[in-house]
């Protein structure tokens, strides 16, 4: 085990994978200097053919990733902030997610599209979205949302080795956070949730940066005699439904923490799975701790009022276990 920062772990994964496979190409805006640090040093090491700054033209870049992959390369496209994926959404939604099926399986698309996402840092509405519900709905694209340095490395490696497109989202502002990264070759499979904490009273499914908040909440709850189990799905597509259902079977209560806007969030999907496949296991309604259906305001006091917090998780859980109607 080594202590690495979140962003270093991704950077390590990139170095190791690009070294291993000469067909991996990294491109995007300012990847050479690296705004977040995740692509730092790659240009010097691998040269301009394999690591390349692009003009600002997201609509073209996502299409280019498809063309490069169809022509036998393994592109990694860095989109900087996930909001800019909307500018490049056409080729993601109309080409990348569909062409494997549309060509009858002829076109393999080993593409990784990466970006930072999420709020909490006063970056305001156009730099703090949480777009994974859109990608989850496309089909044909895997969606990885690491919550810690070790998973970031392992999930990134799985993404670039896969022959299918993957969206890899790094929780924004978490780059400096230290975490344990296993030594040697470290891969994390897609579709395998992690149980971050065991508990008997309530299951908290928390996504990405929400795992840390859930962990803080679990400590506060324990002080109140409530033992929470925390599940980190790690990938939203594929989603490890079995691990979530097994946990509900034990705790019989489910709270989902997601920093997407509430409507049609990943939390909505997980709640639907629980209702559909776990109805008989539940003894309380499923609750979602999400961002309400507003876009992220700028002022820290406003942002805090809508962003999920450990306090909100705690009060939601306490209301559930005391059998009151939760917020």
């Amino acid at each position: 085990m080594a202590k690495r920062r979140f962003i270093q772990a991704i950077n390590d994964a990139m170095f190791e994978e690009m070294e291993r496979d000469p067909r991996i190409i990294l491109f995007g805006e300012d990847v050479e200097i690296s705004m977040f640090g995740d692509t730092k040093g790659l240009r010097d090491h691998f040269g301009p053919d394999r690591v390349r700054d692009t003009p600002i033209c997201e609509a073209l870049l996502t299409g280019m990733a498809v063309g490069m992959a169809a022509a036998g390369w393994r592109p990694v496209l860095h989109m900087m902030f996930s909001n800019f994926m909307y500018t490049g959404f056409d080729a993601i939604a109309n080409q990348m997610s569909k062409l494997h099926l549309m060509t009858g399986g002829q076109m393999k698309l080993p593409i990784t599209v990466m970006a930072g996402f999420g709020g909490g840092r006063s970056t305001a509405a156009q730099h703090s979205d949480c777009p994974y519900p859109l990608f989850m709905n496309l089909g044909g694209i895997n969606v990885a949302v690491p919550s810690n340095a070790g998973d970031a490395k392992g999930l990134f490696k799985t993404a670039v080795r896969s022959n299918d497109p993957a969206i890899f989202l790094e929780p924004g502002g978490r780059g400096g956070e230290l975490g344990e990264v296993p030594d040697g070759e470290h891969l994390v499979s897609f579709g395998k949730a992690a149980i971050r904490r065991e508990g008997r009273d309530v299951t908290i499914v928390a996504i990405g940066a929400m795992v840390k908040l859930a962990d803080q909440a679990a400590k506060a709850l324990a002080a109140n005699g409530v033992e929470a189990e925390i599940i980190d799905p790690r990938t939203l597509v594929p989603l490890d439904e079995e691990t979530i259902l097994a946990s509900i079977a034990k705790t019989r209560r489910l709270v989902i923490v997601d920093e997407a806007r509430d409507r049609c969030s990943a939390a909505s999907q997980i709640a639907a799975v629980a209702a559909d496949r776990g109805f008989g296991l539940l003894k309380a309604p499923v609750k979602r701790v999400t961002v309400p259906n507003v876009c992220m305001p700028y002022a820290p006091v406003l942002e805090r009022s809508v962003y999920p917090s450990s306090e909100r998780i705690v009060s939601t859980v306490l209301a559930l276990v005391s059998n009151q109607e939760a917020i």
Binding site: I25, D49, A59, L60, L61, T62, G63, M64, A65, V66, G67, M68, A69, A70, A71, G72, W73, P75, D90, A91, N94, Q95, L99, M102, T103, M107
Partner: peptide, 25 residues
């Protein structure tokens, strides 16, 4: 043949990517 396309202009990005691939090849 990387495909006909139902999105008008959809081939522009794909072909640019393929041309980049050609250059790398």
């Amino acid at each position: 043949i990387l495909g006909a396309n139902g999105i008008v202009g959809g081939g522009l990005g794909i072909a640019t990517g393929a041309a980049f691939a050609a250059k790398l090849d």
